[in-house]
Simulated scan of single mutants.
Amino acid sequence: MSKRFLKITAENWLKKFYGESTSDYVSIEDIFVNTGREDKDEHVNRAWLYNMMSNLKPFGFFEKEYEVRNGVRATKGIRLTAKGRQVLSSQPSLAFERQADAVEEMREVSFTSVLEDVRALRTRHPEFDIIFDVRLKKEEEVSM
């Protein structure tokens, strides 16, 4: 049975591959580090990466770059396509997410702030129908 990624899953893996890099190119060694696989055997990592890239290929986020090793062509890294650049530019970096979490703790929560967050989620994730609904409770349901 073949495993097929949802677009959001593929986008998340692309983001992991690139980590905090701002370059269009990332080497396979950097991919292994960014995905926490730097301590694994190179042959195991290359097999894993080959399978991951096969699953990601239909989305067209990157092109492989090759080198010749011992007379055999091998993947040396990947380069973003326009689609891949769009994915990485539309998602906040990990550092930004950590900073946003810290700011969230200090921010006062109000209907206005929640509406702003819902608008941001709708913009970031147009594939979802995000609904924000507030209703006044019936008087007997309100406890004081």
Rank of each mutant, 00 (worst) to 15 (best):
100 A>E: 04
63 E>P: 00
78 I>E: 01
47 A>Y: 03
64 K>D: 07
73 R>K: 14
101 D>T: 04
68 V>A: 12
88 L>V: 05
34 N>R: 04
111 F>V: 09
107 R>S: 09
101 D>P: 04
92 P>F: 10
77 G>Y: 02
13 W>H: 07
12 N>C: 14
124 R>T: 07
3 K>D: 15
133 D>V: 00
87 V>Y: 00
32 F>G: 08
99 Q>E: 11
91 Q>L: 12
43 H>R: 13
65 E>T: 12
100 A>M: 09
60 G>T: 04
14 L>F: 02
30 D>W: 07
74 A>G: 13
90 S>Y: 00
79 R>N: 03
106 M>Q: 10
76 K>F: 09
113 S>F: 05
76 K>M: 01
107 R>Q: 08
104 E>A: 13
93 S>V: 00
75 T>L: 02
113 S>V: 08
99 Q>L: 08
28 I>F: 09
97 E>C: 10
72 V>F: 14
71 G>A: 05
99 Q>V: 00
98 R>S: 15
25 Y>K: 05
132 F>I: 00
114 V>W: 08
7 K>V: 06
67 E>M: 12
24 D>A: 11
1 M>A: 15
126 P>N: 12
5 F>N: 01
62 F>M: 05
35 T>M: 13
49 L>P: 10
47 A>Q: 09
87 V>Q: 01
99 Q>I: 01
32 F>M: 14
48 W>S: 12
53 M>Q: 02
140 E>W: 13
128 F>K: 08
17 F>G: 00
95 A>Y: 15
53 M>S: 02
111 F>D: 03
26 V>K: 03
39 D>F: 10
80 L>K: 03
53 M>G: 02
37 R>S: 13
8 I>F: 05
143 S>R: 08
103 V>S: 05
125 H>T: 09
104 E>R: 06
3 K>R: 09
69 R>P: 03
25 Y>I: 00
121 L>N: 08
75 T>I: 15
115 L>I: 14
3 K>Y: 12
23 S>G: 08
71 G>D: 07
5 F>V: 04
122 R>K: 10
28 I>Y: 01
55 N>Q: 10
115 L>Q: 06
38 E>C: 06
116 E>K: 02
66 Y>N: 10
22 T>F: 11
111 F>A: 02
25 Y>L: 06
129 D>R: 04
79 R>I: 08
108 E>M: 14
35 T>N: 04
87 V>F: 03
85 R>N: 10
125 H>G: 11
125 H>V: 00
17 F>E: 01
98 R>H: 13
46 R>H: 07
130 I>G: 08
77 G>H: 02
57 K>I: 06
44 V>L: 01
79 R>V: 15
116 E>N: 07
25 Y>H: 03
114 V>G: 01
102 A>G: 03
64 K>G: 02
128 F>S: 04
58 P>S: 04
58 P>R: 03
118 V>G: 00
83 K>R: 11
63 E>G: 00
84 G>T: 07
134 V>N: 03
49 L>G: 07
92 P>T: 10
31 I>P: 00
66 Y>E: 10
30 D>H: 05
57 K>S: 04
6 L>W: 05
106 M>S: 12
135 R>A: 01
131 I>H: 10
107 R>F: 05
84 G>M: 01
65 E>A: 11
92 P>K: 14
140 E>R: 11
54 S>N: 10
117 D>S: 07
62 F>K: 04
68 V>E: 09
20 E>K: 10
125 H>N: 14
126 P>R: 01
100 A>C: 14
57 K>P: 00
78 I>T: 14
72 V>S: 07
